[in-house]
Design a binder for these strands. Structure first.
Lengths: 229, 229
DNA sequence: CCAAAAGTGTTCTCCATACACCCATGC
DNA sequence: GCATGGGTGTATGGAGAACACTTTTGG
């Protein structure tokens, strides 16, 4: 049943920049478009906002439909409202960014009905629409936010070593950090539980594993903190 | 000429939280609604986004139409997409916040055709829709941003004393600051031009006036800075 | 025993903080 | 001369930054 309006309205979509992390790179999950415009080009997962769902719900629904991801860390980024973003019609998009544990989701994305794949953030293919600009904004937000909110932890497995944690920060911030100062700082925050476990199957001394102290972690996530690493 | 769509679409509006500053308070500019729903209630200036304008342009247009304000500092805040925000139909709104020199605009708002007025931020009337939540978000953003970006300067007249500047930070952050430390810090940033002028018509020693050093100011606004006052 | 990464302390510098008095001006 | 705000310096403590060697383990 078609709807009629007095004036033309912009259409409203959501788009998600999904970040993942492996040993070497910060990666972004992209979907290959099968329809015009930009058929064959890679693009951010996303789609139209329905009238009976919030925009947050729309972002989660599209993420689940197009990539199979659920229960991820998801936060609104910025709303892009340029007049010529889409060649078909006027479309305003609310961009979100998500952080996921890449290893948990590597296979799933690749075997999805639609063509989905992870790309290193500094080696992306040419993207559809203005999606490169959205990715740039999301990266800037992530780099800024990681300094005063412990959100980056969403990118790691539940148990991790301090070296892994440091590596994550180095990859996101794109610079090297001093090992001793990093450990001193992160341990002083008291958001890590030291476990009685170590890495397995490594060809050198095994590193101790840590887990987030959920209580202090949530507390600190609310208050913000000064993580000037 | 009415337009027809296959599926119902959310409508899209913009709303603006306009901050101003006087000697005592941080204030917000509100418009009294003359139509239902919420007729008679105070609300944020705003309105529908047209298909042929960007959302930034829509925000500036609505601000000009409803309050007469032009050329103000304006920045996107957040997009509010709750399903029941508006009792008539589904409306998603992109919220902006603006900073203006209150003294320049005091009269204009009051004499506008529609009923507009400034209210102290901690003494607002009951607002229409979810606008109180939008104001809360805007205040939180302003308080956070003022610490690492010199945006607050948009609230002051072109020439101002260090005491005025300190007063502005105290009002925004809602706490007292040490005079000597404040001056030391702000002068060390080298974004102020010391003028050969002083306040006029005060019943005590007249304070020296300063102006922003546009070059360094723009530079620092881009880079961000650490204003941990 | 060798390769590889884990783990560990100290020094220095800088910046935020705390704090109190004299000065200039108008009335 | 007094009331009002303008303007100034110093001492202390804490945190970030720089920096190198020993330990553990597997192969």
């Amino acid at each position: 049943m078609p709807f009629t309006y007095e004036y033309a309205r912009p259409a409203l979509t959501v788009d998600c920049v999904v970040f993942g992390l492996d040993d070497e790179d910060l990666k972004v999950l992209l979907i290959q478009r099968d329809l015009e415009p930009f058929a064959g080009r890679w693009a951010l997962p996303g789609g139209f906002v329905h009238v009976d769902e919030t925009i947050d719900q729309a972002a989660r629904r599209e993420l689940a439909e197009e990539t199979g991801l659920t229960k991820v860390f998801l936060e609104q980024l910025y709303t892009f409202g340029g007049v010529d973003r889409d060649p078909r019609e006027r479309i305003v998009t609310v961009a979100y960014y998500a952080l996921v544990r890449l290893l948990d989701h590597k296979v799933q994305a690749a075997t999805d009905a639609r063509n989905a794949a992870w790309f290193a953030i500094d080696d992306l293919p040419k993207l559809a629409f203005d999606h490169q600009g959205i990715v740039d904004a999301a990266l800037a937000r992530l780099q800024g936010k990681v300094r005063y909110q412990p959100i980056g932890f969403e990118l790691l497995p539940p148990k991790f070593s301090l070296t892994q944690l440091q590596r994550m920060y180095e990859i996101i911030l794109d610079r090297e950090l001093d090992k001793r100062n990093f450990r001193k700082k992160v341990l002083s925050l008291e958001i890590l539980d030291e476990l009685d476990e170590v890495e397995q199957d490594v060809a050198h001394r095994a590193a101790r594993l840590y887990r987030f102290d959920e209580r202090n972690y949530r507390q600190l996530a609310r208050e913000g903190f000064n993580f000037e690493i």
